[in-house]
């Protein structure tokens, strides 16, 4: 059994009388320690996958298994606990609490976990040793995203979910952030799922899952992922 399994997952949103099929039966797996890239155009269902995998939304039908647990059967409370202890989330727009310093943002996540990593070490690891006391507004976009990654990592999650982590960053900064994620995956053995519409990023993953019209159109295993430095887009 794989670490993550999506078995015929359907998600239908009801807007009044209109039913919108966001996910029409997605099937894929991700192994532990893998760096998976979920790629596809806007509206293909990437975000829905992320929402379901991240425990932010519930399936209409189908089965999601993470580390042997059936997420689709979780109650709201169990989902919260799942997000709390198992998931690290990196947002496109960083979503840092503006009123907290870099360190405090990390602490905000770490304080609710069972086995958080050392906060300062985590921040040092993302290369922000000297910016701990700064507020988000005093940091660049790349730095903010590093804080967000540190925040996700400090929770010591089983799974790191990244939603367009470079979407709001310039090329160079984006690369640095991706590199950080790749290194995290390799060094710490954390399973990483990155969602992107940028197909150029696909070579960096162990596994590339392509989504189209609410279905997984193609799954590609990449035994030799390319280091991010070598990828150009």
């Amino acid at each position: 059994m794989s670490y993550i399994e999506f078995n015929n997952v359907k998600k239908i949103y009801k807007m009044g009388d209109v039913k919108i099929k966001a996910l029409a039966g997605a099937n894929f797996t991700v192994e532990k320690g893998e760096f998976a890239v979920i790629a596809g155009p806007s509206g293909a269902g990437k975000s829905t996958i992320l929402n379901l995998l991240g425990g932010m939304d519930t399936v209409t039908t189908g089965e999601i298994i993470v580390d042997g647990q059936h997420i689709n059967e979780f109650s709201q409370k169990q989902l919260t606990a799942y997000r709390r202890y198992d998931i690290g989330f990196v947002f496109q727009f960083y979503n840092l609490v503006q009123n907290l310093t870099a360190r405090e943002n990390v602490e905000l996540a770490a304080q609710i976990c069972k086995n958080p990593l050392d906060i300062d070490e985590t921040i040092d690891a993302v290369g922000l040793k000297d910016r701990k006391g700064n507020f988000p507004a005093q940091l660049s976009g790349g730095e903010q995203q590093r804080v967000a990654i540190a925040r996700a990592l400090a929770k010591n999650p089983k799974l790191l979910l990244c939603d367009e982590p470079t979407g709001a960053l310039d090329y160079q900064t984006g690369k640095a952030v991706l590199k950080l994620l790749q290194e995290t995956c390799i060094k710490r053995g954390v399973t990483v799922v990155v969602i992107t519409h940028n197909l150029a990023l696909t070579p960096m993953g162990n596994k590339v899952i392509r989504v189209k019209n609410g279905m997984v159109s193609n799954i590609e295993i990449n035994d030799n992922p390319v280091p991010i430095d070598e990828i150009e887009w």
Partner: peptide
């Protein structure tokens, strides 16, 4: 709202 949604995603229970 954004901040609150974020901390929810971070896994804060409703009461928290």
């Amino acid at each position: 709202i954004r901040e609150i949604a974020t901390i929810k995603v971070l896994g804060f229970f409703d009461a928290e």
